[in-house]
Amino acid sequence: MKPADALAQFVQDGLRAGHSPEELRRALTGAGWQEGEVAQALSGWQDAGLRLPVPCPRPQVSAREALLYGLLFATLLGLCWNLVTLGFALIEEWLGTRPDWRGTYIPRWAIATLIVVTPLFLWLYLHIERVHRARARASVVRRWFGAVTCLLAALTLLGAAISVVYGLLSGDLTAQFIANTALVVTVAGLVILFFRDFLQEG
């Protein structure tokens, strides 16, 4: 039996035997269990006064949910990547710094991708939110999606900050460089603001 299973079993038996959650908490912390582990184990059961512990709904992973969040992640990635690519190309075009050899196929690909991906992302997000609210149950996939998305966005911000310092040190802090960095920071910042709640809601 895994330690977590033993803990859950103990809590269930303890509640069944008529002990209060506070008594069980004291016993477990006295035995060396961490506060977080004890809290998680206790949150799995509710003492409804029936002398029978009532199991609480636990976060679940379903294949359908994983598919939806996977698609949402892919479309979000496609949206952000192509938004930045298109932004870079437009900044280059407006500042007249596009090299001759580089045609317009890069921004055209980005536009084509955004036209397909943006409505799909929007639809997936609204659909997932509707399902999530209707179910009103914690989701492990949702929490992981939020964590990975915010991690990537935070790493992007970190990279942008390093680029700015490097640009400053190497004397390459041009208008194009500043505009490109501002775009990356804006997109990454919006992503973090958008999905940080997923971490808490889980």
Binding site: L83, L86, A89, L90, L114, T118, F121, T186, V187, V191
Partner: peptide
């Protein structure tokens, strides 16, 4: 974020 994408496509 979505508005930014729409504006970028239009500007593009």
């Amino acid at each position: 974020l979505v508005a930014l994408a729409v504006v970028a496509v239009a500007l593009g």
